[in-house]
Computed example of a mutant assay.
Amino acid sequence: MSRIAIVGGHGQVALHLHPELVRAGHQPGALVRREEYRDELEGLGAEVRILDLEGQDADAFAAAFDGCDAVVFAAGGGPDGNIERKRTVDLEGSLKSIEGARKAGISRFVQVSAIGVDDALPADTGDVWRAYVEAKRDADAALRDSDLAWTILRPGRLTDDPGTGRVALGDDVARGDVPRADVAATVAAVLDDEASVGGQWNLVGGDVPVADAVRGAGR
């Protein structure tokens, strides 16, 4: 059994990820800032660790990661119009997670990003969307430049549709929708596949079973 620290442990992808990890024989650790989430998360099989993603530093992240074998960054500032939180959550949260993993001696790191964030933005892009894309882009660049054993997943438009267990995963996969449940299943699969280290892949709904898609993308 491996212990997996999940930053953004009460997020919509994370809520699907905890039971996926339990089914795979791992112990998820949900890093959240509110004690009130404990009962719900423990009901999904997760250990709860309290961490204020925005208010605490990399040393606190390292302490929260203690005893874990891998880190998943699945946090996001949400769909609101708060530009500042795109920086403090999506970028700075990732940077502190990367540094915290290093301080804790953890090499394996999986980041949930977003499709197309390296593409040039149209001139009429709104300020909030621009801030979000730039935060995800810079967080991915920082992780690629780190010495961690990283994998970056870049989902398309997230939906609450039931998971299908089938995806399209790869460098050149076009934009599309993907259920959050299938994103979670893919995160769990790449954690168990050493060949996924160093992979940065787009992820949308598709026809290939998740395990096969991960094996194919990593080779």
Rank of each mutant, 00 (worst) to 15 (best):
I4H: 01
G8W: 04
G8A: 02
L15Q: 14
H16T: 09
R23W: 02
R23F: 06
G25C: 12
P28R: 04
L31M: 04
L31A: 04
R33S: 03
E36R: 13
Y37G: 09
D39T: 15
D39Q: 15
E40T: 14
E47Y: 00
L51Q: 00
D59P: 02
A60Y: 07
D66N: 11
V71T: 01
G77P: 07
G81W: 07
E84W: 15
K86R: 14
V89R: 03
L91D: 01
L95M: 10
K96Q: 09
S97C: 01
E99F: 02
A101S: 05
K103R: 15
G105C: 07
V110P: 00
Q111K: 15
S113M: 09
D119A: 14
T125L: 07
T125E: 10
G126I: 06
V128L: 12
V128S: 10
A131F: 10
V133H: 10
V133D: 05
E134A: 10
K136M: 11
R137Y: 01
A141N: 11
A141T: 14
S146I: 09
A149W: 09
W150L: 08
I152Q: 01
R154H: 10
G156A: 00
R157Q: 15
L158Y: 03
G163L: 02
A168D: 11
P179E: 06
D182E: 09
T186F: 03
L191P: 02
D192T: 14
E194C: 10
S196F: 11
G198I: 11
V204Q: 08
V208S: 06
D212A: 15
D212V: 14
G216V: 08
